[in-house]
């Protein structure tokens, strides 16, 4: 787990990054890069597509083919790249606002198509870039810049949403459980289809400060105390699981993948043509 493992994937001339001290984004990005390293992927064949927000700035820091798009729209761009070049590994880096709010429709439809994308959502429960408004993943009751009396909305469970929409691999972790992240990324990339990896990350500067967790360590403690492994969760009642985050590999299934299906369609016509000629 030495830093040297992933140094080669960073564009060191783009550092230091823009993230605040104590931000969890670096831990998540490190986990993604360690996963890529485990797979020994050719960086020339990896495309990282991101939206807009703190986590989406990751694209500029990593030495792959990188595309920093518009707010909420990373998945459509990634879909275009993947369909044009099915041989490339396409990783989407996004945040909770970017993916679950403005990009929510693209998310469920890419999952429905089982498009071969690995979507990594850095879930810091807030809009960090715009200084702490509530997102669709902000827990109910939490304080935010736009929820000064507590968040009246309930949060999405992105894992269950992805599963219902048709994703074929779903996992969740936290920045406290950093050692777990690389293997989840490996499994997500290896899954031929739509994969979601949600990583709960701390934003001590906005979310933490507004919710009595202003020290980065407080946020990690919160993640530790509220995380429950898939195995543990199996023995808990819904009441006991309330407010907890189930972590680990949450879901996996087999389904036809879109680019493969389209490839077969093209193949069919190529064969017909060669039969005729």
């Amino acid at each position: 787990m030495a830093v040297a493992d992933i140094q080669k994937y960073l564009r060191s001339n783009r550092l230091p990054h823009i993230w605040c001290p104590g931000c969890g984004n670096g831990i998540v990005l490190g986990g993604v890069l360690r996963g890529v390293d485990k797979l020994q992927l050719d960086p020339n064949k990896v495309v990282v597509v991101s939206g807009i927000g703190c986590s989406s700035r990751s694209a500029g820091y990593v030495d792959f083919n990188t595309l920093h798009t518009a707010h909420g729209r990373a998945i459509p761009f990634a879909t275009g790249v993947k369909l044009a070049r099915p041989d490339l590994t396409v990783i989407v880096i996004t945040g909770d606002g970017d993916l679950a709010a403005i990009g929510g429709n693209h998310f469920i439809h890419a999952a429905r198509r089982n498009m071969d994308l690995t979507v990594v959502v850095f879930n810091n429960s807030t809009y960090g870039m715009t200084s702490g408004q509530y997102s669709p993943l902000t827990p109910a009751g939490a304080i935010a810049a736009t929820a000064p009396y507590g968040n009246l909305e309930r949060a999405f469970d992105m894992g269950r949403l992805a599963e219902a929409a048709g994703a074929t691999y779903v996992a969740r972790s936290t920045t406290f459980h950093a050692l777990q992240i690389p293997d989840l990324i490996v499994a997500a990339i290896q899954n031929k289809g739509f994969s979601l990896v949600e990583v709960i990350a701390g934003c001590p500067v906005y979310y933490g400060r507004m919710n009595k967790m202003s020290a980065p360590a407080d946020m990690l403690k919160w993640q530790k105390e509220n995380a429950v492994s898939v195995q543990q969760a199996g023995n808990m009642t819904p009441e006991q699981l309330k407010g907890k985050h189930i972590i680990g590999e949450l879901f996996r299934r087999q389904a036809p993948e879109y680019t493969e299906e389209y490839g077969k369609l093209i193949q069919r016509f190529t064969q017909e043509k060669s039969r005729v000629s």
Binding site: A70, R73, F77, T79, G80, V81, K82, L83
Partner: peptide
């Protein structure tokens, strides 16, 4: 979004 992505891929 998809056509812009596909165009960047050639």
């Amino acid at each position: 979004g998809a056509i812009l992505g596909a165009s960047l891929a050639g």
